[in-house]
C-alpha cells in the first residue's frame, strides 16, 4: 500500500478491514483497528510520516531534494490479535523496503490510545484541535482559527480525507498568512529519543532495551534578538543546547523532517511555510548519530 506521509493511519482501516474481515475470529468493526510496529502501538493522531521517522529506524535520506514528496510504503500485514509479527533486524529495516506494520482488530490498547469511532469524528476532532493549537502558536491568538467558517474547517478536513491539496491549501493559506497578522512563533515540536532505561545495565549488555521518546515543544520566534532569522540550528541549539552544540553543524544529532535530514542552516519560518505537516506543525525528529 502506498500512503502519503501527511495522512493518518485510520484512513486505511475501512480498506484493510474489508480485506481481513473474512479471517477474523470475532466480529468487530473497522474502528476497532489499530496499528503497531515492533509491539509499540502507533498513535493514530500522528501523521504517518512522523510515525515512520520516529519508529521505523530507517536511515533518513540525505539528499534534500527527495524530502517532502517521498511516499511512504506501508505494507500492512495480517495479524488478528497478535503473535504474527516476525522479527525484523535493523539490517532489513535499513534496506528501506516497505515499512511493515501489524494491524490489529482486537485488544485495543486503552492505556495508550484513545478509541476511534465509526464515523471518524474522533480523528477529525483530534486533527482540528491540532490545527487550532498550531495556529494559536503561530499568531499568539485563537482568533484566526476560530474565525474560520464551518465550511472552511470542513473543507480543510475534506482536503485531508481526500488527499486533495487544492481543497486543503485554499483554507490553509488563510491560516498561514491572515491579513494584518505577523507570525509570533513557529509551531515546532521536537521528538527526542532518550536513553533506554538500563537499571541493571551490567547483566544484559547484549539485550538492548528500547528507549523512550520525549516530546519537546517550546516557543520559537521567527527572528533572533539580533534581527537575524531563526534557523533550525539556532532554535535547536537554544532548546536542546547539550544535543545541538553547534548552530550550524550537526555534531551529535541530526534533525529529520519528512524522512530527510534537514540542514541546520535552514530558515525556520521558510521551513514552516514549505514543510509543515497538515496540522501546521513542524514535527522534527532528532536522530542521534552513532
Amino acid at each position: 500500500i502506498q500512503f502519503p506521509r501527511l495522512s493518518y493511519l485510520p484512513f486505511l482501516l475501512p480498506r484493510l478491514y474489508a480485506f481481513f474481515s473474512p479471517f477474523l475470529i470475532s466480529p468487530s468493526s473497522f474502528s476497532d483497528g489499530w496499528f503497531s510496529y515492533e509491539d509499540v502501538p502507533l498513535k493514530w493522531h500522528y501523521p504517518v510520516g512522523l510515525l515512520h521517522d520516529l519508529y521505523s529506524g530507517d536511515e533518513p535520506t540525505h539528499a534534500a531534494g527527495r524530502g517532502a514528496r517521498t511516499k511512504n510504503d506501508a505494507e500492512a500485514e495480517a495479524g488478528e490479535g497478535s503473535d504474527t509479527q516476525e522479527d525484523y533486524s535493523a539490517l532489513e529495516a535499513a534496506e528501506r523496503g516497505p515499512w511493515k506494520l501489524v494491524v490489529h482488530f482486537s485488544d485495543w490498547p486503552h492505556d495508550q490510545l484513545v478509541k476511534l469511532d465509526e464515523d471518524g469524528k474522533v480523528l477529525e476532532d483530534a486533527f482540528k484541535n491540532s490545527v487550532k493549537e498550531s495556529s494559536f502558536l503561530r499568531h499568539g491568538t485563537g482568533k484566526i482559527v476560530m474565525s474560520l467558517s464551518y465550511q472552511d474547517s470542513t473543507q480543510l478536513w475534506r482536503g485531508i480525507e481526500e488527499q486533495d491539496l487544492k481543497l486543503y491549501n485554499a483554507v490553509n493559506n488563510k491560516l498561514l498568512s491572515p491579513p494584518g497578522e505577523s507570525i509570533r512563533h513557529v509551531p515546532l515540536r521536537i521528538y527526542l529519543p532518550s536513553e533506554p532505561t538500563t537499571a541493571t545495565s551490567t547483566i544484559e549488555e547484549d539485550a538492548p532495551a528500547a528507549g523512550h521518546l520525549k516530546v519537546v515543544q517550546a516557543l520559537v520566534e521567527p527572528t533572533l534578538p539580533n534581527k537575524q532569522p531563526q534557523t533550525l540550528g539556532t532554535a535547536l541549539n537554544t532548546i536542546l543546547p547539550t544535543v545541538f552544540l553547534s548552530r550550524r553543524n550537526a555534531i551529535l544529532a541530526m534533525a529529520v523532517l519528512h524522512g530527510a535530514v534537514v540542514p541546520l542552516t535552514a530558515v525556520l519560518e521558510e521551513l514552516a511555510k514549505a514543510a509543515s505537516y497538515a496540522d501546521g506543525f513542524l514535527h522534527v525528529v532528532v536522530v542521534m548519530m552513532g
Partner: peptide, 29 residues
C-alpha cells in the same frame, strides 16, 4: 508523557559514543 519507542529506532541509541550519551541525559527538560 514519555512514549515508548520501537527497537528499530532504539538500536542507534545503545551504540552511542559517550559524549552523545551525556548530551541526551536530561536534555529536553
Amino acid at each position: 508523557a514519555d512514549l515508548p519507542i520501537t527497537m528499530a529506532a532504539s538500536v542507534v541509541l545503545t551504540g552511542l559514543p559517550k559524549d552523545a550519551h551525556e548530551a541526551l541525559e536530561g536534555a529536553g527538560d
